[in-house]
Design a protein around this nucleic acid. Sequence first.
DNA 1: TTCAATAGTTCGCAACATATGAACTAACGA
DNA 2: TCGTTAGTTCATATGTTGCGAACTATTGAA
Lengths: 125, 125
Amino acid sequence: MRPLVHPSIEDVTVEGILHALADPVRVAIYAGLAASEKGTSCSAFLQLDDREIPKSTLSQHFRALREAGLIRSERQGVEMRNTTRCGEINQRFPGLLPAVMGAYQQQLMDRIKAAKRKGGKARGV
Amino acid sequence: MRPLVHPSIEDVTVEGILHALADPVRVAIYAGLAASEKGTSCSAFLQLDDREIPKSTLSQHFRALREAGLIRSERQGVEMRNTTRCGEINQRFPGLLPAVMGAYQQQLMDRIKAAKRKGGKARGV
DNA sequence: TTCAATAGTTCGCAACATATGAACTAACGA
DNA sequence: TCGTTAGTTCATATGTTGCGAACTATTGAA
């Protein structure tokens, strides 16, 4: 089993970051990791936003985030401790991550508002 | 020949924008359009950064940008007038586009600096 | 040790996406 | 009507993604 790959911060690319964060599932994972102080295991995201994510799919998403340089994963006993590398990235690309996450936040709020206007339950997928 | 599709600004998604801008060719096109005041034809980008882009590939890239909501394309006689929709997008997702384009700019400058440090010619691809 | 349990990874394949040459269409000007 | 220029669409080869099944690593008993 090959060891986990973490690019050094100089090898992190903007296109890589954008590609990784162009997927709602990965964004949700990233946001979850960013919110937790001391790192989170992968399996914490098996259930995400009412959606079931298969284990193998989750693993691929973590790999994508890791190889884009967005997160760091290290074994801690039987499970994984995942943390964001937002400090390093903010230093290399100041303002990029806040802008992206802020835009997603904005989009979420717009959707909630739009769902309310339609009167029914929030069915936005 | 089906008419060109332009999503209304409420239908523009963050994931769509990021996916479109996760490609260096499309970013170069977008930057070129953003720099020009009165719109630019597609064929202006057939030669890009020393690279030859095939016509059909270019057409797909323009379609991607268009359907992500990043640009507007309208026929002007025999050619196309492409313009960015950055005004609308900045209103809907304030700060997103400047942050992304700024990060690419940063990356470009870092690469130039790194190439200089290595002494040789700028071979960074 | 050996066995079972838990947490992730890797493999294989089907479905989807992308790049590009070739053929096509649309607008214009002889 | 023909030729030219500018883009689009089609066909296809190649690449990427999602997911079940099989595998690996670590820990904790028995």
